[in-house]
């Protein structure tokens, strides 16, 4: 169990001037799983390599249980990274791959063999120890790579996009396996992904990173309910935004004034945001936060219907649950309501 802290961790590669990772601060409590989330190239792998000790930070510090580990070389640091492309040693059997870390720790052969079998059991691939990595499927190789990391009982487990090379159903399975094992073993884990749903499903906390800069570090639901920026909101699937001026719990926009007590800013120019499933449909134009609109088009997606709604030159997306709402034909006039407690005001830009 290790408490992992990153303190202003930065990396500027020698052939560039813009930092690949710029002053990252994270605090991962013992036994927790945190996700590093961001688009490709935002510096996630860079951060992992520095934690693992195979890349020296340009500045900043890495602390395990309050002590800096910068002076400890990778092989003794105890932060094990599972690379995105598995990297199973092709000239070793699967069993030798899994036992590699224990062999490096000079453990005796019999113990290694025993532990290898236990690990294969844990990742639900018993009996493959004598095969070559090339004889396994991608999903199986991923499990072996995980077993090879877990066998050394790392202080910190670093998983670099472990699901991105798998197809959909394998991904669900693998995600659950990772979560189960991580809970059971209580290993402090950093999980890298560019997929926000994956991060939400797995992580205790998510660090959202754009272009090497930490945008927001919060529990998953906060990213949906109270995103810190327009970009964060968009990354988490936000689609409805309306510019305006915010003052005294009121948002004044081109489409009128909305009461909006929830806001990330006190006053000034901002952006009104509301999730598609939070917008309410109706036909009567009374009540607060209600505006007249026109249905542009809709798609029926089984459990819900997705509408595109026009208000003057603005377009909103609305999701209505199929069983509770009457249907509105394209071109019909409706009213939509933005419930005050569902609106979230973002800073502009």
């Amino acid at each position: 169990m290790t408490h992992l802290v990153l303190n202003e961790l930065s990396q500027t590669y020698s052939n560039t001037d813009k930092p690949a990772l710029d002053r990252l601060n994270l605090d991962i409590k013992s036994g927790m799983l945190n996700a590093l989330l961001g688009p490709s190239g935002c510096g996630k792998t860079t951060a992992m390599k520095m934690i693992a000790g195979i890349l020296t930070p340009t500045s900043g510090d890495i602390l395990f249980d309050g002590k800096s580990v910068l002076a400890i070389p990778a092989e003794r640091r105890g932060a094990v990274m599972v690379f995105q492309n598995y990297l199973l040693f092709p000239y070793m059997s699967v069993g030798e791959n899994v036992g590699f870390g224990l062999k490096m720790a000079r453990m005796n052969k019999a113990t290694i063999e025993k532990k290898v079998l236990e690990m294969l059991e844990l990742v639900q691939l018993p009996g493959v120890q004598n095969r070559k990595p090339s004889q396994l499927s991608g999903g199986q190789q991923q499990r072996i790579a995980l077993a090879r990391a877990l066998i050394v009982e790392p202080k910190v487990l670093l998983l670099d996009e472990p699901l991105s090379n798998l197809d959909a159903h394998l991904r669900d399975e693998m995600r659950e396996l990772i979560r189960d094992i991580q809970r059971k073993m209580g290993i402090t884990t950093v999980f890298v992904t560019h997929d926000q749903e994956e991060a939400v499903m797995l992580a205790d906390k998510i660090a959202l990173i754009f272009e090497g800069v930490l945008q927001q570090y919060d529990e998953p639901d906060v990213f949906y309910n109270q995103p810190g920026s327009l970009r964060a909101a968009k990354f988490f699937g936000g689609v409805n935004f309306l510019d305006g001026e915010y003052a005294a719990n009121q948002m004044t926009t081109e489409l009128g004034t909305f009461s909006a007590p929830r806001s990330s800013l006190d006053t000034g120019p901002g952006v009104l945001s509301i999730r598609p499933e939070d917008i309410e449909f109706g036909t009567t134009n009374d009540g607060d936060n209600t505006i007249s609109a026109r249905v542009n088009s809709h798609v029926y997606v089984g459990t819900y219907t997705k509408y595109k709604i026009d208000v003057n030159d603005f377009r909103f997306e609305v999701i209505a649950e199929a069983n509770t709402k009457e249907s509105f034909p394209d071109g019909s006039n409706v009213t939509i309501r933005f419930p005050a407690d569902k609106i979230w005001i973002l800073p502009k830009g």
């Binding site: 000790g53 092989e75 094990v80 490096m104």
Partner: peptide, 19 residues
Amino acid sequence: EFEEQGRVLGANPIRNFRY
């Protein structure tokens, strides 16, 4: 990257070269 993988799994530079 195979060498980086070896390192994080506990191989010092000499054993990493060897194995």
